[in-house]
Amino acid sequence: MLELKSITKSFRDFKVLEDINITARPGEIYGLVGSNGCGKTTLLKHILQVYRQDSGEVYYKGEIVKEDSELFKDFYYVQDDLFFPFGSTLRTLFEYEKMFYENMSEEKFNKLIKFFSIDSDKKLSTMSKGQKKQAAFVLAMAANPKVLLLDEIVDGLDAVVRRKFWNVLIKEVQENNMIVIISSHALKELDNISDRVGIMHQGKIIKEENMESLRDNLKRIQFAVEGEYEDIQGENFKVLKTVKIGSVYFVTLEGKAEEFEQALREKYKVLIFSELAMNLEEIFITELGGTGYGIEEYDEE
């Protein structure tokens, strides 16, 4: 298990991470999502101890992760802004990285370059952004890490390659009991593959939950009542947002939908009532909206 406990970091006077607590379990994909500049990459670099936290600790297998720790043999990081040593090809880089990762598998490497149709002898500097991402992903998978940190890995990839990516990743996680943390803005795709999600905003984790409970907790209700609807309150639910389109109301709700329905029916004559599924993107927007992020309307004075 990989745990981040109370990680705090300031860049001079600017607090970039504040009391970050995260738990990622083996065999799970952890989706790290957040607003732009919220500190996702910074957080990943703290896990690797490229940056050192001002306070708090990173734990892996119950041990504190420190710079130069041998625990890093289990870690592999694919950064958003990729770097490859000067003049290297995927093949030479594989040979180079073999020095660091004892589980580096040539068989898997060959299988993956074939699967992604990559020329392993082509200089990496001449490859397109998408090809570079694939190359980096191939190396990461071939290293057989126990902890895989992926920063914006599908950024710049076409839909077909993305699907290949997720297929490989899901298979590897299941087979090798890997911990995967993916930082991404591709929320729809993360929605399908993530077991657990952490939502970041302004250096804080504002929500961290399993996808299931996240979906259970946040709901969207569509209803129509006789007369004008005014927001109602209940002990076990909280109306986060109400939008009226024509005569139909859409309510974003936190808590129990049944109790909201009951309270609604007690107060109004309900003409239509149905519960809609919320995806990660909607949950994300709702959560960030709760912090006041992105709620401005363009024409609003």
């Binding site: 490229v50 802004d81 660091f100």
Partner: peptide, 15 residues
């Protein structure tokens, strides 16, 4: 170079 530094620092090798 942040990219280079992160690449090398993320590898299981000591400073």
């Amino acid at each position: 170079d942040n990219r280079k530094l992160t690449y090398y620092a993320s590898k299981p090798s000591t400073r």
